[in-house]
Design a protein around this nucleic acid. Structure first.
Lengths: 165, 165
DNA sequence: TTGGAATGTCAACAAGGCTGACATAAACTG
DNA sequence: CAGTTTATGTCAGCCTTGTTGACATTCCAA
């Protein structure tokens, strides 16, 4: 188990190392969501609205079904969130041209403004963490996260990554 | 912004890189919680129970107040969870000896059994991700996560890490 | 003895998940 | 064309897990 005479050094796979990684994920995710959460707490919105706005901004014109798959929630849950965002004029829903059953989602100017506020806050923390850890650590960070995803989520993540840059 | 003639290569700090990191965190955290969630779904328990059981196992005899601070929830929320765990015989609450106001929390044999099931599942995914990414990536992963935490959470995380190994 | 700390409990509420059932319109298929 | 499937929306209700506020108990410490 802890025999250092292995052909390869596998000490990073001990239960204790894994547990530390698990706890690091837990505490880090709290920090990750803390700043946008603080902004949203002053509004009638929550984390679910943030996620919707983020991915609509990321893929303008996305359909409801696509957003559903990315977010991994039910249409009822998403619809509740989208309805308020549309009512409040942050999101616009346009009937599809090719397929009129589909609704294509876009951020309005107000929606983009909110998205900016939220992602500025979240990126600021991310940037500080990246800068503190350095480019090599960041590469490792991304590798481990990708390996941790479910296969279908990894596909979606990689597709977004491609489309972005 | 994207001038490659900088003294240091800071391309890993572009908004696009940061956004990819943000999305990686989102998708990876879903994977991170998926396996324990599946186990808990078959019981009357949720993710909050998992967290409580995890940290009681990690620091046996911890007080309610300490657990409160680690989990970052209100005592009412935690109490609801603890009550069911105690009623179901998974957690034991012992009145403190030095300070009889305090309750010290311990897992029972049944509690340890559940903790094992949950952490085995979570560690299995973590182990696969670690193995796929390799030790150097894991080191970077941990560095970035630590830098992402709030300062007080980082203190708690490091204290746990010390105590563990 | 009195004030404050640690804990527990009751009540009420909100966000955001979920399921099930049903409606509508559009597209597809035989 | 008739029937089925798909995409979406909506209503109703439920669960978990977070919140606040109020109040009781117990006990330590000044």
């Amino acid at each position: 188990m802890s025999d250092p005479a292995l052909g390869e050094n596998l000490l990073f796979l001990t239960d204790e190392q894994l547990r530390q990684g698990i706890e690091a994920m837990f505490f880090a995710y709290r920090g990750f969501t803390a700043d946008p959460d603080r902004i949203l707490a002053d509004m009638e919105y929550g984390r679910a609205h943030h996620r919707a706005v983020h991915f609509i901004n990321r893929a303008p014109g996305t359909t409801v079904n696509n957003l559903l798959a990315i977010l991994g929630v039910t249409k009822q849950s998403l619809n509740r969130v989208l309805r308020t965002l549309i009512e409040d004029g942050l999101v616009e829903s346009r009937v599809g041209t090719a397929d009129k059953r589909e609704r294509h989602l876009f951020l309005t100017d107000d929606g983009r403004a909110l998205e900016q506020r939220l992602s500025d806050a979240q990126r600021a923390r991310m940037r500080a963490a990246y800068r503190a850890a350095g480019p090599q650590a960041v590469a490792g960070f991304r590798q481990v996260l990708e390996a941790m995803m479910d296969a279908d989520m990894r596909r979606r993540y990689l597709a977004l990554k491609e489309s972005g840059a």
